[in-house]
Design a protein around this nucleic acid. Sequence first.
DNA 1: AACGTTTTCAACCGCTTATTA
DNA 2: GTAATAAGCGGTTGAAAACGT
Length: 301
Amino acid sequence: MRRPPCCEEIGIKKGPWTPEEDKILIEHIQKHGQGSWIQLPKLAGLNRSGKSCRLRWINYLRPDIKRGRFDDEEQRLIIHLHSILGNKWSTMAAHLPGRTDNEIKNYWNTHLKKKLLQMGIDPVTHQPRTDLNLFSSLRNLVLASTNSNDSLTCSTDINALRLQADAANLAKLQLLQILMQFLACRYPTMESSSALIGTHQVNDQFDQGLVHGSMGVSQDALSVPAVISNPDSPGSNNGLFGNYSANPAPSVVPVSPENQKDIQDHMNWTEDCNSSRDWDELNLENLDNELGWKDILELIS
DNA sequence: AACGTTTTCAACCGCTTATTA
DNA sequence: GTAATAAGCGGTTGAAAACGT
């Protein structure tokens, strides 16, 4: 079924399009319609492949293309769609009028993916990450949340404030759980002591805190976006992280294979809590440089 | 100002799927 | 049913811009 290389494509121009080429393509399509992309370059007098013409038109020259930054609503939608569809960029583009699959793909890879990673959420599984890298990112988020009043005072974007608050609160929850896992592993015999509560108790607290809003996570952020065809889904479409509502207590799951590289440089310290070497390498004392882990515990309490 | 590094995104490549003869 | 062709899709690349030192 492999298509043989087309001899007509030998010697054709590649690389960035010139304004002149754009003009020729636009005028030709306006005059004759899209028709056959293979025939188009020849008919229009362009030294380009049909593929290249199609891509240029669909991703850049179409009159209904919406350019500029993605707004909060679009970001929420992309994240939610990705949690359901995975890397089905063209399907996602169908839900975002004026946006192309290429644009969404680029935006995901350059912005949203990083955002989720910084929040400690695996961009593939859309579940909280457990690697050590998360620890520092969570600390940053907790720090950001404590400074949010300063850094965002001048902002009139209420959504931005809420998103950051939600992210920071989720980070706090994850950080607390990770710390509890650390303590539970470090002191297994004290599992049920009042000083070191067990993980299941932590989860209960998460549940209660999230359900009742006592942990500060806005209810909006925990609701399911109504964009996807799920008429049974309760709640409204608010909050960038609404798609995580199916997992109200951020259960700790392994990081996806795709992001394994990110954590190769760190020990997999939550995977095997019997490995004393790993725990010893997790030098919590070093975290005192900017914000001690004890301080974090105070912050999230 | 100069240089190196990182980020962004348009464009390409190779593969799969759909259509047609 | 099969093969050839066209269209579409997602991953990857690389040039340019932005940023940091």
